[in-house]
């Protein structure tokens, strides 16, 4: 919608960005369930350059349907259904990612192409849309199309339907066992250590990082010997400006908070529509952890220092991005 209004900031040369943007908008019909063709990094098996004909798309869809209704697909130990995620769940999120929040991604080269890494991001926005957008951002922008495995709060796995979708999209419970298992398998794991303190904070505290739990994510990364990639997400704070928290209602429903925004719950379901803010996701320089001895994971001082380092990096990047931002919506 507002392509011309976006002012390119950051280290990336303007020409390259333009080229990519042109490539993206020129990509035929929007609903094709193929991974989008990139102009810079051709994937190992390049998709046909011409847009798929209707018949090919129908044939592809029928083959997909055939596999699904006969149960002929694989899931991993965590219940991650790669086919469903790629072909259905990602396609449902992509309009939000591309058209609604117009997510701009910087520093995707900081995510390694192979092997494990732990992406640590800030958390905000009342509903965890930032996690989902981060997942699309990593998959669609990374040359190796890596899949982000998010660690989610236990509430997610208590709720019906939500838990089923979360497992199929590759999310798992935020606990040290699961995180370490995924990292040792060489997956990219995403964690938001602020948890409910971050996502449910009042609007007046926006972009102020909350406490990073007990820093368990650092010791997990250290034990697995994978780098920590700090990640700052700007724009998610304003999608549901939370001006109040109905604590009694929250307790009744068993939720950690019950948000009151200028539109919710006053407008009913319409008030649950997020505001169309413009998002920026910046991945920072990876912090290597491979150099530490194995017993370092039990050193609380080192854990606190590394946690603080990650937290400071994210907070400073947030301030930098906020200064560069021209408006919340454009």
């Amino acid at each position: 919608m507002a392509d011309a209004k976006v002012i390119p900031f950051g280290e990336e040369p303007r020409a390259r960005r333009k080229a990519r943007r042109a490539g993206r908008t020129g990509r035929g019909t929007a609903l094709a369930p193929v991974p989008e063709a990139r102009t810079e990094h051709p994937p190992a098996a390049p998709p046909p350059s011409r847009p798929r004909t209707l018949d090919e798309r129908i044939a592809g869809g029928l083959a997909f349907l055939r596999r699904r209704i006969t149960g002929d697909y694989e899931v991993d130990d965590f219940g991650y259904d790669e086919e469903l995620t790629d072909q259905v769940l990602m396609s449902l999120l992509r309009p939000f990612y591309e058209k609604y929040f117009r997510v701009e991604v910087k520093g995707v080269e900081n995510i390694p192409s192979d092997g494990g890494a732990l992406i640590v991001a800030n958390h905000s926005g009342t509903l965890p849309l930032d996690g989902l957008m981060l997942q699309v951002a990593v998959h669609d922008n990374h040359p190796a199309q890596r899949h982000l495995r998010l660690l989610a709060a236990d509430l997610v796995f208590v709720l019906p339907v939500i838990n089923e979708l979360a497992r199929k999209a590759g999310h798992t419970l935020a606990c040290a066992e699961d995180a370490q298992r995924l990292l040792e398998r060489g997956e990219i794991v995403g964690v938001m250590p602020e948890g409910f303190k971050g996502i449910g904070k009042p609007f007046s505290d926006r972009y102020k990082l909350q406490r990073f739990g007990r820093g368990g994510f650092v010791s997990t990364a250290l034990k697995a010997g994978v780098p920590i990639v700090p990640c700052s997400i700007v724009g998610a704070e304003e999608i549901y400006p939370m001006i109040g928290n109905a604590k009694t209602l929250a307790r009744v429903f068993g939720l950690p908070y019950f948000p009151i925004t200028p539109t919710f719950p006053w407008l009913g379901p319409l008030g649950a529509m997020p505001l169309p803010t413009k998002w920026t996701i910046q991945f920072g320089e990876p912090i290597p952890t491979a150099g530490y001895p194995p017993e370092a994971a039990d050193d609380p001082m080192l854990m606190f220092n590394l946690t603080d380092q990650v937290r400071e990096t994210i907070q400073h990047t947030l301030y930098k991005l906020l200064v560069q931002r021209r408006s919340v919506f454009f």
Binding site: T53, L54, D55, I58, A59, L62, L65, R66, I69, T70
Partner: peptide, 20 residues
């Protein structure tokens, strides 16, 4: 079920008929 889908797949390109 698979056969039903296959039959469907057999019918549809015959209708479009271009790319086969």
């Amino acid at each position: 079920l698979a056969r039903t889908v296959d039959r469907l797949a057999g019918v549809l390109p015959a209708r479009g008929g271009l790319s086969q």
